[in-house]
Design a protein around this nucleic acid. Structure first.
Length: 280
DNA sequence: GGGTACCTGAAA
DNA sequence: TTTCAGGTACCC
């Protein structure tokens, strides 16, 4: 599930639960995750829970004179989740559907559950290795001017361009469609073809959609306390994503679905006219 | 740049 | 049975 707002939600919910707690162990249960130096985390203290792009990053402080910092990074990819299970002795009982890894802390577990097994865990000494290449669209640095420079000259279609993590980090397939619907821009427009006012609309849509999605805890998400249900509520506000064949909320024209680079794009052909600068 | 692969489950 | 899925790495 996770795009930027969902990962932000995970991080905010996890932070007060795990910060300051001591790591007992990191259990890797799926060989697809590869070999990690899990012994190095034992006894470290969780110093934070951060979102770096779409990745959950936990700085771990060790009681060693040399190399006191370790960085645990978890990318949820398509179906990964981090579920908190409070409890005193939860290292046993590894039976949980799709459980791939478990961070055992004093007072509870962080369970990495991931049916499709695309998720990735990294453990590194140097946080530079985790630095996302693109700009964070929720940060101060993301301005209309910066967006204009990033778009400059690109001959890629807008919607695939929005998915590029080396330009803007954090957008995914749902919010890319939602952002273009709000900005009233056709997904097949060439990224480099936007004029100043269109660029401003796109910038505002990125900021607004992400802010609203974060406020509503993202689109569908599992609870950390009890394993049931979804706390995310943003799906109620989706204007176009998943709404092929439904009337557009603004003009009642039928919402369409097209495929770009093998992925679904939803848009309203009336509110988001092709206009000039559309790819051939 | 764009297709394809990775993997599994749910829904059509 | 086939298609689709919130992501990204790797191929030409």
């Amino acid at each position: 599930m996770p795009e930027l707002p969902e990962v932000e939600t995970v991080v905010r919910q996890l932070r007060p639960l795990v910060c300051g707690k001591t790591v007992r162990s990191l259990r890797i249960l799926d060989e697809l995750l590869g070999k990690l130096a899990v012994n190095r985390v034992r006894g470290a203290v969780v110093a934070g829970v951060e979102r770096w792009g779409k990745e959950v990053v936990m700085p771990l402080e060790r009681r060693t004179k040399t190399d006191p910092w370790l960085w645990l990074a978890i990318h949820l990819r398509m179906t990964g989740r981090l579920l908190w299970r409070a409890g005193a002795r939860p290292a046993v009982d590894l039976h949980r559907p799709w459980l791939r890894a478990r961070l055992v802390l004093d007072g509870g577990n962080v369970d990495f559950v991931d049916p499709r097994r695309f998720g990735v865990i990294r453990l590194v000494d140097d946080p530079v290795l985790l630095q996302p290449p693109g700009v964070d669209p929720t940060g101060e640095a993301f301005s209309t001017g910066l967006l204009r420079r990033l778009l400059g000259g690109s001959r890629q279609e807008l919607k695939p361009w929005l998915l590029r993590q080396d330009r803007i980090t954090g957008l995914g397939n749902i919010y890319a469609s939602e952002i273009l619907a709000r900005a009233r821009l056709h997904p097949c427009r060439l990224a480099g073809s936007l004029d100043q006012s269109e660029t401003r609309r796109l910038h505002r849509a990125v900021v607004t959609i992400l802010r609203r999605a974060i406020r509503h805890c993202g689109t569908t998400f599992s609870d950390f306390q009890d394993t049931s249900g979804e706390t995310g509520a943003f799906q109620r506000f989706l204007a176009v994503y998943g709404h092929e064949g439904d009337p557009c909320g603004r003009c009642s024209t039928t919402v369409e679905r097209i495929v770009q680079q093998g992925r679904s794009t939803y848009f309203c052909p009336a509110c988001q006219p092709a206009g000039s600068g559309r790819s051939a």
